[in-house]
Structures are given as C-alpha cells and as structure tokens.
Simulated scan of single mutants.
Amino acid sequence: MPLTLALVAHDRMKPALAEWVARHAAQLAPHALVCTATTGGVIRRHAPDLPIRLVKSGPLGGDQQIGGMIAEGEIHALIFFPDPLAPQAHDVDVKALLRIALVYDIPAAFSPATADLLVAGGLLARG
C-alpha cells in the first residue's frame, strides 16, 4: 500500500532535502509526496519525475495544512529538515507540526541521517 509522505525543509536545509529525495527517488516514486510550496519547488528541480502535491509555504500556513493532514490520517510519515541555527518567524507553527507528528505517532525524520534510517528500516518498501 503506497504511503503519503510530507516533505518540509527550512530555507538553508532545502538543498539537503532535495539531495536526499534525489538519492531515494526510485524508492519514493510509488508513494504520494506532499510538500510545502517552496520546498516542493526545490525538490522538483532535483527530481522532476516525482509527483508532488504542494500546499502553502510554511510561513503562509503550509506547516499547519500538513499538521491537519496528519491529524486526519492522510500523512503516514514526516521528513522535515529544520535549520537548528536560524530563528524562524513561524516558529509556533513549526512546534505545532512537531507536536502533531508526536501526538499521532507517525514516523518522522529531522536530518538526512534519520531519514536514511527510515528508508533502511523498510518504511518505503511498503509501496
């Protein structure tokens, strides 16, 4: 059964997420991908063949849209590369997204290393 994965990254981390997606494009292809707008644009340039559904950018409510999709059971895993060294104007929304991922106990990765572990653990093999 294909999964729906949310892919989000702060500005400085978008290239790292796009590179991660490009490395795992074949494993991601059977799954539905949902990205915040700016992150999705960067990912599309690195992996143009992957179908990506866009929501609003994070500061405009995209993090909250993804949180709502998690609460509704529409998102099965979250890959979110935050920038731990830069303050975020929408920090409250970011915290809410993290909280909802924890409340609904979905697999989540916050760096390339942890995202690689989700892949190695067989998460994407479910497609």
Rank of each mutant, 00 (worst) to 15 (best):
A113L: 15
G73A: 08
T36I: 07
H46S: 14
R12L: 11
L118R: 05
G68V: 02
G68P: 01
S57E: 09
V94M: 13
L117Q: 15
D91T: 12
D91Q: 15
C35W: 02
A6E: 07
P107H: 06
H31M: 07
L78P: 01
I52Y: 00
V94N: 03
A26E: 15
V103R: 13
D116G: 06
A96R: 14
D63R: 06
L54V: 04
L124Y: 00
I75G: 00
G121N: 13
P59N: 11
L3C: 07
L50E: 03
A25K: 09
T38W: 02
I75E: 01
D63V: 04
K95Y: 11
D63M: 12
A18P: 01
A32N: 15
P59H: 10
P87M: 12
L5G: 00
T4N: 09
S111V: 07
A37E: 14
R53M: 14
V103G: 03
A9G: 03
T4Y: 05
G40I: 03
A29W: 00
K14V: 09
V94W: 08
A29E: 13
G62I: 05
P87L: 12
A26R: 13
I75A: 05
A109T: 03
R44M: 11
G58E: 02
L98S: 08
A26N: 12
P87N: 11
K14Y: 09
P15T: 05
E19W: 10
A6N: 04
P15Y: 06
A71I: 08
S111P: 07
V94E: 10
R44H: 13
L33Q: 03
A37Y: 13
I66Q: 00
R99V: 09
A9V: 01
L85Q: 14
L85Y: 14
H24C: 06
Q88M: 13
G67C: 03
